[in-house]
Design a protein around this nucleic acid. Structure first.
Length: 198
DNA sequence: CCCTGATTCGC
DNA sequence: GCGAATCAGG
């Protein structure tokens, strides 16, 4: 379907009424959210609270262009991470106390590591500057340092191992291969300490 | 992950 | 002109 006068009128109306692009697209039918936004802009309708308006200072909007740069490598996500089947995420990293029968060597789980990783937070931070909740994104390691609620609490902040919530070292910490079963030994690992509660 | 609007660019 | 793909942020 195309943009008939009627549909354009509807778009105008709904857009200025404050409906979201998705809602408008939904109402019109046969068009995507992007189509609505594109059309709205072409019509001159615009300036609605955008999540991305946080464009501070002189950074209009410049990112990797498509055909512009000749030598522009494309870090495409590609194949997703093959969720380790024999692994167990440990939500309570502090409790890495594995006193009894410490395995001679923690078996290196097969965690895909694609790129070398700088051992520093994504954004250079002043010494002592903490990686707080407000800094979290899909891109930085969310491995907790310290205990929530305590003044020193912060997050690791290194770049994540793509597809994981943690950086590579912390992935190795969090996802450990299941050790071979042994009937002579208690099947249950000792309970890790409970998280502190206030 | 879901969502939002903005922008780019091949068609 | 159109809108999918992408981006950047909530």
């Amino acid at each position: 379907m195309s943009w008939t006068d009627e549909r354009i009128e509807t778009l105008r109306s709904l857009w200025e009424k404050g409906l979201t692009a998705s809602q408008i697209a939904d109402k019109l039918g046969s068009v995507s959210r992007n189509a609505v936004i594109g059309k709205a802009h072409r019509l001159g309708l615009k300036a609605r609270p955008s999540p991305v308006k946080g464009d501070s200072d002189g950074t209009p909007r410049e990112t990797a262009k498509k055909a512009a740069a000749p030598a522009a490598p494309k870090p495409k996500p590609e194949a997703a991470a093959p969720e380790a089947a024999a692994s167990q995420p440990r939500p309570a990293p502090e409790a890495k106390a594995t006193p009894t029968a410490a395995p001679a060597a923690a078996p290196k789980p097969a965690i895909p590591v694609r790129t070398a990783m700088p051992a520093a937070p994504v954004k250079p931070r002043a010494p002592g500057e903490k990686v707080t909740l407000l800094d979290l994104s899909d891109k930085i390691c969310k491995w907790p340092i310290g205990h929530p609620g305590e003044p020193d609490f912060q997050f690791c902040g290194r770049p994540v191992n793509p597809g994981f919530p943690y950086c590579t070292p912390h992935c190795a910490e969090a996802y450990q291969a299941q050790l071979p079963r042994d009937r002579n030994r208690p099947s249950r690992a000792p309970m890790p300490p409970l998280p502190r509660v206030r």
